[in-house]
């Protein structure tokens, strides 16, 4: 079977982002960009499923401008077999993104679509579930363990109450949570090899995907700052301060 993995180029998770003073967004010029950390986990899991003999091919896909090729090459260097780049300079929101992935899934007919549980820029946590709805496939979100048993996946999910296990029929959508695995490091020879792996670019217009109604961003602001606190010198001082506030 094939596994299709969606990856997204985002501002690196270590960057302290700055809100532009005019409220038009977040400064991204010259800021370090990386593959969304949850997507790295999704790629890693797909590779492990293949290495365990449960899949023949891992295809990675992304949607976005030319620069997103870097993240596809990273995924290829990790071990993905080929890549698909849906080229667009437009901002793609989750529902349209899910429709695009549905078009790719219709074409490639994977048995599993793996995605990260959320992108760390828009923090939406929607795309996998939306793709589940559009394809009428089962979904197992926030996965921390995936076991393939024939045409079924047994997935453990990180939920508020603890760990939930679902059994889902393939084809299915799985979204990766942090503890699913530890993504591998990319080695230099693999980066060289990745340059020769197939990367197909498709113009968004050629996929005939209808753009969904969009949520309009009116403004972007910095969150209210917490007032700077004080350092206390002893536990006694701390207890007094908390008692004054009626907290203990």
């Amino acid at each position: 079977m094939k596994i299709l993995v969606g990856v997204k180029r985002v501002v690196d998770f270590n960057v302290r982002i700055q809100v532009k003073p005019d409220g038009s967004g977040v400064a991204t010029d010259g800021v370090k960009m990386s593959m969304n950390p949850f997507d790295e986990i999704a790629v890693e899991e797909a590779l492990r499923i293949k290495e365990a003999g449960n899949a023949e091919e891992v295809i990675v896909a992304t949607i976005g401008p030319k620069a997103c090729q870097e993240q596809l090459r990273t995924a290829l260097a990790m071990g993905a077999d080929r890549a698909i780049h849906v080229l667009t300079d437009d901002e793609i929101q989750p529902l349209t993104g899910a429709r695009i992935l549905k078009a790719l899934a219709d074409k490639e007919e994977p048995q599993i679509v793996m995605l990260g549980k959320q992108a760390i820029d828009d923090d939406n946590n929607q795309t996998a579930q939306m793709l589940g709805a559009l394809s009428h496939w089962p979904q197992a979100t926030f996965a921390s363990e995936v076991k393939i048993e024939g045409n079924t996946a047994i997935v453990t999910r990180e939920v508020d109450a603890g760990l939930e296990t679902l059994s889902i029929d393939l084809p299915a959508i799985i979204s990766a949570d942090l503890r699913l695995n530890e993504p591998r490091y990319v080695k230099l020879p693999d980066i060289m090899k990745a340059k020769r792996k197939p990367l197909e670019a498709i113009a968004l217009a050629d996929l005939n995907v209808e753009v969904a109604p969009t949520v309009k961003v009116i403004k972007t602001t910095a969150p209210a700052k917490r007032e700077a606190g004080i350092k206390v010198g002893s536990v006694a001082e701390l207890v007094t301060a908390l008692k004054e506030k009626g907290l203990i």
Binding site: R16, D123, P213, V215, K216, P223
Partner: peptide, 16 residues
Amino acid sequence: PVYAGNAVITVEAPEG
């Protein structure tokens, strides 16, 4: 909130 709560966006939902 977006970017781990380091920015807040004001958004308008489309009609419907």
